[in-house]
Design a protein around this nucleic acid. Structure first.
Length: 157
DNA sequence: GCCAACGTTGGC
DNA sequence: GCCAACGTTGGC
């Protein structure tokens, strides 16, 4: 199975790519996904998959870096933590509903603004550019991933 | 701060 | 199972 590619959104005020890089080894859990479709995409992630780390609710919104999946989906403990903003009181103790993956910062990108992606015909099919898209985790084609990485000045793979 | 789009909830 | 109400996302 060849490696797959993803795009993961985070609000930089909450958790930025710089925060990711600052974590020990650049590794940290991707927590707080509370949407079934996004969760299912995370469950499909495999070790070594690569993802674009995208800053939503930023001015302007932009792709900020590249991360690698370093641990496949496992239960997101924050669903059980009443002090967490991601606490979900509906989830039974024996049946965790929400998962997280661990990701590692691979390389920062020169910020690639949403407008630039929208203006690039090579990215015409990009999920996050489609009307009404809100999913925080979406798949990318290999070509889409490499095009965004190239726009952000990442060295060719 | 606004609001379009969309997911979820819950009454029936 | 329908669907109205409600909450959230996220660009602008």
């Amino acid at each position: 199975m060849p490696r797959a590619y993803w795009l993961m959104k985070s609000e930089p005020d909450v958790f930025s790519f710089a925060d990711q890089q600052a974590a020990p080894g650049g590794v940290g859990p991707w927590e707080g996904v509370r949407n079934y479709q996004a969760r299912n995409f995370m469950r499909a992630m495999k070790l070594g998959d690569l993802a674009i780390f995208y800053h939503s609710n930023a001015t302007p919104p932009h792709a900020a870096g590249i991360v690698e999946i370093v641990r496949e989906a496992y239960p997101d403990d924050t669903q059980y933590d009443p002090t967490s903003p991601y606490y979900d009181p509906r989830v039974p103790p024996a049946a965790p509903r929400w998962d997280r993956v661990d990701v590692r910062a691979v390389a920062p990108l020169t910020p690639v603004p949403l407008d630039a992606m929208r203006g690039n015909p090579a990215l015409a099919t990009l999920r996050i550019l489609q009307k009404g898209n809100r999913l925080s985790v979406t798949p990318l084609t290999e070509d889409e991933f490499h095009e965004i990485a190239r726009m952000g000045g990442a060295p060719p793979a």
